[in-house]
Design a binder for these strands. Structure first.
Length: 405
RNA sequence: GGGGGGAUACCGAAGCGGUCAAACGGGGCAGACUGUAAAUCUGUUGGCUCAGCCUUCGGAGGUUCGAAUCCUCCUCCCCCCA
């Protein structure tokens, strides 16, 4: 009883903060918003987690959104866990089109290496309410076939088939392997293994998170809340997916991050503020409605986001670089520099440095008038133009400085 | 186990003996327009020693002057029946 009293005291019951937590960026609430509100006001210290599968070498902006939500829970004194899906990543969450290539344990661990460090930009792994880092291989690797059967008996095939990924596969007459089919079950078991009160994640994870909810209810009689977050997408739906390549990576340079955000459509400005900053949304909305140039508001968004990853000064620098390069058409301060030998042709250097893939690709760029020598302010029109020590620009965004060897 | 259908470039999808490096759509890249926006329009999207040549249509053989297209075997997938 004593410890229970202690826990009660450690949780903050700030009404405003709780409402912000319940609404900002949240797509839905399971089982209900009121359920979670009651839990938050009950004074209980809740245990919740965010699971990330280390399928790629770095976190990206999409991960930051639920991480920020996790942070809000942490700030209120709740117990938060960042779960690295080192087991689940090997299977891969089923994709709507193809069977994923299975990763090796080594690849997965390699990917996960920087995750904690990157996640600590948002949640704290230090101090008195430090976030915990867990790995789901530690329990999944111990389950045997009999355990798996017990779990599998809690979910029906019909329930599993509700997953849109599976439906799409079936519709497209593409194979679904049993190990993929079991993915939601495996991921769902995480909630049981950690015996949590809740989970946050992207809206695309709703199905998996709900499987966890079902399992926890079946096995421990516990009502797990599930908080799916809105996804950062443009009006057409899925422009920001990592497959399309324009997702902000944590490892992008500040300038790249700034530029990528500026390339978002205007319709994403408000959702961008909602999901990636703490700024009051009503003010932004008023300004947008008031006819202010969306570009300027987007610049602020880009600045705010870059600031969360780097620092105020760096964000300002990225903004200045953006203005200088794209609004005034100058050369950015920091550009990739490559060496060229005497007598080397421009295409030879570009191919060697993998700036272009082939000679014919270089030719196409020449023919399109896409390559400029910025130092001489001259368009390159000849295939065999020499590689001069100058700054070259390909298209709008790519700058290279060639230096003599 | 039986029967039928299918595997085509980054993805989807035409082609079914020569005119096929392969229509069309999406995505990518580039150009115009702009706010590096978005939308739109245009070009381009295997490689090279570039009016030509080489490699590519699941894999391996074969038929043919000639194959993505026909035949054989293999691998994989889907559907229907049991």
């Amino acid at each position: 009883m004593v410890s229970w009293f202690k826990q009660k005291k450690s949780v903050i019951l700030d009404k405003e903060k709780i409402e912000e937590l319940l609404t900002r960026g949240v797509e839905r609430h399971y089982p209900s918003e009121d359920f979670l509100r009651q839990r938050l006001f009950s004074g209980d210290r809740l245990k919740l987690y965010l699971g990330i599968d280390p399928t790629g070498p770095t976190l990206h902006l999409g991960h930051a959104i639920p991480l920020r939500k996790l942070k809000q829970f942490q700030d209120l004194g709740h117990e938060i866990i960042l779960l690295i899906g080192d087991f689940t990543a090997r299977i891969g969450d089923p994709d709507k089109k193809e069977v994923r290539k299975q990763l090796t344990r080594k690849e997965v661990l390699e990917n996960a290496k920087l995750y904690k460090e990157q996640a600590s930009l948002f949640v704290s792994f230090k101090g008195k309410n430090a976030a915990k880092l867990m790995f789901n291989n530690s329990w999944h690797s111990k389950l045997n076939f009999s355990d798996v059967l017990d779990l599998a008996s809690k979910i029906t095939v019909q329930q599993m088939l509700e997953r849109d990924m599976f439906r799409k596969r079936i519709q497209a007459e593409k194979p679904i392997y049993i190990h993929e089919f079991m993915y939601p079950l495996i991921q769902g078991y995480d909630a049981v293994a950690m015996n949590v009160d809740g989970e946050v994640g992207g809206n695309d994870q709703t199905f998996n998170m709900l499987v966890g909810r079902t399992l926890l209810k079946e096995l421990k009689g516990k009502e797990k809340f599930v908080l799916p977050m809105k996804l950062l997408v443009d009006t057409t739906g899925s422009k920001m997916g990592k497959t399309t390549g324009n997702m902000l990576s944590f490892l992008d340079s500040p300038e790249e991050k700034f530029g990528k955000i500026m390339a978002w459509t205007d319709e994403m400005i408000l959702i961008g503020f909602e999901l990636c900053t703490d700024i009051d949304l009503s003010k932004i909305k008023n300004r947008l409605d008031g006819g202010e140039n969306p570009r300027d508001i987007k610049m602020e968004l880009a600045y705010e986001i870059v600031k969360t990853y780097h620092s105020d000064i760096v964000a300002k620098g990225a903004r200045d670089a953006f203005v200088k390069t794209f609004q005034k058409g100058n050369t950015p301060n920091e550009i990739k520099s490559v060496k060229a030998g005497i007598g080397e042709k421009l295409y030879e250097v570009f191919i060697r440095e993998e700036i272009v893939n082939s000679k014919i690709e270089f030719r196409r760029l020449i023919e399109a008038g896409a390559i400029t020598n910025k130092t001489d302010n001259e368009k390159i029109t000849e295939m065999d133009a020499p590689a001069r020590p100058s700054v070259y620009k390909i298209g709008k965004h790519r700058f290279f400085e060639i230096k003599a060897m």
